[in-house]
Design a binder for these strands. Structure first.
Length: 594
RNA sequence: GGGGACGUAGUUCAGCUGGUUAGAACGCAUGCCUGUCACGCAUGAGGUCGCGGGUUCGAGUCCCGUCGUCCCCGCCA
């Protein structure tokens, strides 16, 4: 096939631009052939670019040359068209596309490139499995839907940079080739050619660098930055992902929250969502107690309450008190099998006692009636203000199995039940955008396997100042100056006020069973820096991919990353990771086992 | 690391209790067609049933293993 040269021709319009007002103009369009409809001496081409589609008419009577070429054209061929914009006859207007009132009468058709038949149609709605889409990602991204997402992401990046800069934050780049840090996720390693046996690590986040920038006097820093974590992946987790990383010196938490809330307002305005400010704040302990989650969805009004049984009833049931009760308004009609499914869910989440109460008019029914008596059941129902027509769910632990871990599992189970009820009762209204701050996280969590405390956030998080004297005596009770940003039950960011004093940092390392030697080996440079005039500082990191996914209404961040990897961290398009030449290994001083 | 779902034509799927030559739709190719826009009509090509082993007279179908994709748990400060 003979192809044409573009020469010095320039596009005069995009395909989605043309309207009635352009009628009579001679235009030059270029793009991909979305569809060809061949009626013999009349051929219609749907010409597509990132802005939309315009119909091109190739009429043998108007231009035999253009018509000849149109006969050669196939799906996804790249063509240029010169011709006149003409109004369509009223009965041939296509109301489905914005440019549907006009069409371009082709005078010249340039065949710029041919194309193999694509493995899937280049359309918004396709049924193709994700594997195929990822293998041919360049074609997948050609779809209008993906172009919209890519462009939304671009506008979001611009909004972040504008907003942060306007608030005195400067973007500073930090190294991708750095050193491995303890704790946290597994690192991706890069072997050094010059120093055999030594490795760079790709950063899990620029945590230390942003703190060093505070020590350096940068005052307010941000960066839209790639982070790398070598753990198992999910719909909302990738091997490499993008954070909006933020840090400020002399921080007041409320000032930081305000900057972030305004940022969210600007970002969601891009998708015409009005964000309510200020965002509510919830203590971690309250979140766990009432919602059974450290990232609760507050877009629906269900909350657990700790309630006590009347005297003596607890002993009859052999369960822990207080137990947890949840009033489900208007679901007295729940069927036996529906309740059984909820009980299964509770059990699957290791809550070891589940029951319920139905309030129907003046009558109250519960499997507990026979065991603890109707009066006690009524008292329970009253303690959560259950009204006629309501259902009350109850969960607890066997009194013999109450441990810290069991209590955490009970909270987690109550959280799962709450979410399941929201799904089943369709309590989450479309268009709900429920932001919230979760604050006052525990400083440490006990690692059963390692038999030591680990940092819940990271080891540079400051304890609350009023808790400092309990650092050694009661670390489990310590609260950190850490916070998470939650949207509709998804964690979209987290941060903390950091430790800026070297003496406190040493005490925290100590509580984490990190010996001075180990600490010095791992980040001696950082401890030195801490002694060099560190201002109070703190910040946050926002999950950019997750935020874009929520804005775009996508449930997987793969949909908003141009070239994502699979759950096993494989790039199906370029087939990475891959083996390398033996010479390359030799240079690096590496050999592969087996 | 564990659990679940899926894997058949380029794509999306059907394929019963194991039984002749593995089907459909869309797409693709060729021809006809001047107002289509999911064009239409006619004809046709296209299959390592993910891969390997086993059972059987016979396997897309049953069994074992393995690979891949997705979802969940663990993990991810």
């Amino acid at each position: 096939m003979k192809l044409d040269l573009l020469g010095d021709r320039q596009r005069t319009h995009f395909c989605g631009d043309l309207r009635q007002s352009h009628a009579g103009q001679t235009v030059f369009l270029a793009g991909w052939v979305a569809r060809r409809r061949d009626l013999g001496n009349l051929i219609f081409l749907d010409l597509r670019d990132h802005t939309g589609i315009t119909q091109v008419v190739c009429n043998r009577e108007v231009s035999p040359e253009a018509h000849d070429k149109a006969e050669e054209v196939r799906a996804e061929y790249v063509v240029g068209v010169e011709g006149e914009v003409v109004l369509r006859a009223p009965d041939t207007v296509n109301a489905q596309i914005p440019a549907g009132e006009v069409e371009v009468k082709a005078k010249t058709l340039l065949l710029l490139n041919e194309a193999k038949t694509p493995p899937f149609p280049i359309e918004d709605e396709i049924k193709t499995v994700e594997e195929t889409r990822l293998r041919y990602r360049y074609l997948d991204l050609r779809r209008g839907k993906m172009q919209k997402i890519i462009r939304l992401r671009h506008r979001a990046s611009l909004a972040v940079r504008e907003h942060m800069s306007a608030n005195g934050f400067i973007e500073v780049e930090t190294p991708f080739m750095t050193r491995s840090t303890p704790e946290g996720a597994r690192d991706f390693l890069v072997p050094s050619r010059i120093h055999h046996g030594h490795f760079y690590a790709l950063p899990q986040s620029p945590q230390l660098f942003k703190q060093l920038l505070m020590i350096a006097g940068c005052d307010r820093y941000f960066q839209i930055v790639r982070c790398f974590r070598d753990e198992d992946f999910r719909a909302d987790r990738q091997a490499e992902f993008t954070q909006i990383d933020i840090e400020m010196a002399f921080p007041q938490r409320d000032v930081l929250f305000d900057v972030i809330e305004q940022l969210m307002e600007k970002l969601f305005a891009l998708v015409d969502v009005k964000v309510d400010r200020p965002f509510p704040r919830l203590a971690y302990d309250t979140a766990m107690e009432k919602y059974g989650s450290d990232k609760p969805h507050l877009g629906f009004d269900l909350a657990w309450k700790r309630v006590n049984l009347p005297d003596g009833a607890g002993e009859k049931l052999h369960i822990m008190q207080p137990l947890k009760a949840l009033r489900v308004p208007g679901w007295e009609s729940a069927s036996r099998s529906q309740l059984d499914k909820l009980q299964d869910l509770a059990r699957a989440n290791l809550a070891d006692w589940f029951s319920y109460i139905k309030v129907s008019g003046n009558e109250i029914h519960s499997p507990l009636d026979k065991i603890i008596g109707g009066e006690a059941v009524r008292a329970l129902a009253n303690s959560v203000e259950a009204a006629a027509g309501d259902l009350v769910l109850l969960v607890s632990l066997k009194s013999s199995s109450v441990t810290r871990q069991a209590l955490q599992r009970l909270d987690a189970a109550s959280g799962e039940l709450r979410l399941e009820l929201a799904r089943r009762r369709e309590l989450i209204k479309p268009g709900t955008w429920s932001f919230l701050w979760v604050v006052d996280f525990p400083m440490f969590e006990y690692d059963e396997k390692e038999k030591r405390f680990g940092a819940m956030h990271h080891p540079f998080t400051s304890p609350r100042e009023e808790d400092l004297d309990k650092l050694e005596s009661d670390p489990a009770s310590l609260k950190a100056r850490a916070y998470d940003l939650v949207l509709n039950g998804s964690e979209i960011g987290g941060g903390s006020i950091r430790i800026h004093r070297q003496d406190i940092q040493k005490r925290v390392f100590d509580a984490l069973s990190l010996t001075p030697e180990k600490a010095r080996e791992r980040f001696g440079f950082f401890l030195d820096a801490l002694e060099s005039g560190t201002p109070p500082h703190g910040g946050i990191a926002l999950g950019f991919d997750r935020i874009i996914a929520l804005m775009a209404g996508e449930s997987s961040i793969r949909e908003v990353i141009a070239f994502p990897k699979t759950a096993s961290a494989v790039d199906l398009m370029c087939d990475a990771p891959a083996t390398v030449d033996p010479e390359q290994l030799e240079e690096l001083g590496l050999s592969i086992k087996n």
